[in-house]
Amino acid sequence: MRSRPASVLAAASILAIVVAAVALSAWIAPYDPAGQDLSARLSPASPQHWLGTDHLGRDTFSRLLEGGRFSLTVAALATVLTGAIGTAVGVLSARRGGWLDEFLTRTNDVFLAIPEMVVALFLVAMMGSGFPALLLALTLTGWTPFARLARALTYDVAARGFIEASRVLGCSPGFIIRRHILPHLAGPLLGQATLRFGQFLITVGALSYLGLGVQPPQSDWGSMLAAAQPFALRSPLTILAPGLAIFAVALCVTVIGQHVAKGAGNRLPAADTRSAQDA
């Protein structure tokens, strides 16, 4: 068994702590995230307030835990949805070919040309700010990198001899995709997913910073950055805490994902020629 690099172990430990703390925020948060104490506004870090308080006297650590639930949930759901949609589109495009491949490829190019921020602003104007609009905005354009990668990899795998051998043995198209193509796509797509998760997390933070995320008194990491900006010099922890949280989670997921993707790629079989009876 190969030992895991220290960087991967450190990233996994940090990520596990953050996810556990966010998931248990309702039980471990020392204060009500929306509770105000104007007499303690902009207090520095102390045994009572580990990360100090914001301009309304709200506990920064409690709000950081609450805000993480929104930010991480949106980024994770967007990654899963866009990965599934993009992989399906890419594999279908490559396997079907012809006019369908051309249509899906051109559609992909159109969506690639549309900035996610513009889509989010449009959807918020139509639907209002909040969870559904953000998730839909990220999903509507976020599947395109997965589709391009899945299409290119599918064409590469389909050109190998064991695909033709499987076809001669009578394996169904669905069986070939499930047993031969998708396992070869797993590693690269997992690496793409980790990169996209980090991008989604930063995009959610940016949109929330602009006021397109949750609305007060609820919090998320982006809205915390926006609220703390005027008081950054007086209380730097109020802006450093959410900023470092976004950076740390995105970095940890990327480090872990790249290691797992590399390992998955090394374990892939060179050929899988299961018989038609296995189908």
Rank of each mutant, 00 (worst) to 15 (best):
M1G: 12
S3H: 11
S3A: 12
V8Y: 10
A10C: 12
A11W: 01
A11L: 01
A11V: 04
A12E: 08
S13L: 14
I14L: 14
V18A: 12
V19M: 02
A21D: 06
A23M: 09
L24I: 07
P30N: 05
Y31Q: 11
A34I: 02
Q36L: 05
S39D: 09
R41M: 09
L42V: 06
A45Q: 03
L51D: 00
T53L: 05
D54S: 06
H55S: 13
L56E: 09
L56F: 10
G57C: 04
G57F: 03
D59G: 01
T60L: 09
T60D: 07
F61P: 08
R63K: 08
L64G: 10
E66N: 10
G67D: 02
R69V: 05
F70V: 13
L72E: 09
L72I: 14
T73K: 05
A76W: 12
V80C: 08
L81V: 15
G83N: 09
T87C: 13
T87I: 15
T87A: 15
G90F: 07
G90T: 04
V91D: 09
L92W: 08
S93W: 05
W99F: 11
T105M: 13
T105A: 14
R106A: 02
V110N: 00
E116K: 13
V118P: 08
V124K: 04
M127D: 03
A133C: 07
L135H: 03
L135I: 04
L136I: 10
A137T: 04
A137D: 10
L138Q: 01
L138A: 06
L138H: 02
L140R: 04
G142N: 01
G142D: 06
G142P: 03
F146K: 09
L149N: 09
A150R: 06
R151Q: 15
L153S: 11
Y155A: 14
V157K: 09
A159P: 01
F162W: 04
I163V: 15
E164V: 03
A165Y: 00
V168A: 14
S172K: 06
P173H: 00
H180W: 07
L185R: 01
Q192K: 12
A193S: 06
T194C: 15
T194D: 05
T194A: 15
L201V: 10
T203S: 13
G205H: 01
S208D: 02
L210T: 03
L212H: 00
G213N: 02
G213D: 05
G213K: 08
Q215T: 02
Q215P: 01
P216C: 03
Q218V: 07
Q218G: 00
S219V: 14
D220A: 05
D220S: 05
W221H: 04
G222Y: 01
L225F: 03
A227I: 12
A227W: 14
F231W: 12
L240K: 07
A241S: 08
A245N: 02
I246D: 05
F247Y: 12
F247L: 15
V249Q: 02
C252S: 15
V255P: 06
I256C: 08
I256G: 00
G263F: 01
G263D: 07
A264N: 01
A264T: 10
G265I: 10
R267T: 10
P269I: 01
A271E: 13
D272N: 14
T273P: 00
R274T: 13
R274I: 12
A276I: 02
Q277T: 12
Q277G: 10
A279E: 13
